[in-house]
Amino acid sequence: LLAPAPCSPPAPFLLILVPSAPSHRDRRLAVRDTWGGPWGDSGTPPSRTVFVLGVTANPDTRRELLAESRRHGDILQGDFGDTYANLTWKTLLLLRWARACCGGAPFLLKADDDVFVHVPAVAAHLAAWPAAPPPRLYLGRVHWAVAPNRDPRSRHHVPAGLYGAARYPPYCSGTAYVLSRRAAAAVLAAARAVPLALPEDVWVGVGAGRAGLVPRHWARLGGALRVPAERCCLGRALLSAHGLGPARLRGAWRRLREPGRACPELLRGALGRIRCRIMAWGERIWGRGGDGTEE
Rank of each mutant, 00 (worst) to 15 (best):
P4C: 02
A5S: 14
A5K: 09
F13Y: 15
L14Q: 12
L15M: 11
R32A: 02
R32G: 03
G36I: 08
G37H: 13
G37M: 09
P38K: 02
G40V: 08
S42L: 03
P46C: 01
P46E: 07
S47C: 01
N58Q: 11
R62H: 10
D82Y: 01
A85W: 12
N86E: 05
C101Q: 13
C102I: 14
A105I: 13
F116A: 04
A123E: 11
H125D: 10
A127T: 11
A127L: 10
A128H: 15
P130D: 02
A132Y: 11
G140W: 08
W144A: 05
P148C: 01
D151W: 11
D151Y: 08
R155A: 04
H157R: 07
A160D: 05
A166Y: 06
R167S: 01
A176E: 02
Y177N: 01
R182C: 01
P195H: 00
E200P: 10
G205Y: 12
G205M: 08
V206N: 05
V206W: 14
P215I: 11
P228L: 02
C232I: 01
G251A: 13
W253G: 04
C263Y: 15
E265T: 10
E265Q: 10
R275A: 08
W281L: 12
T293P: 00
E294L: 00
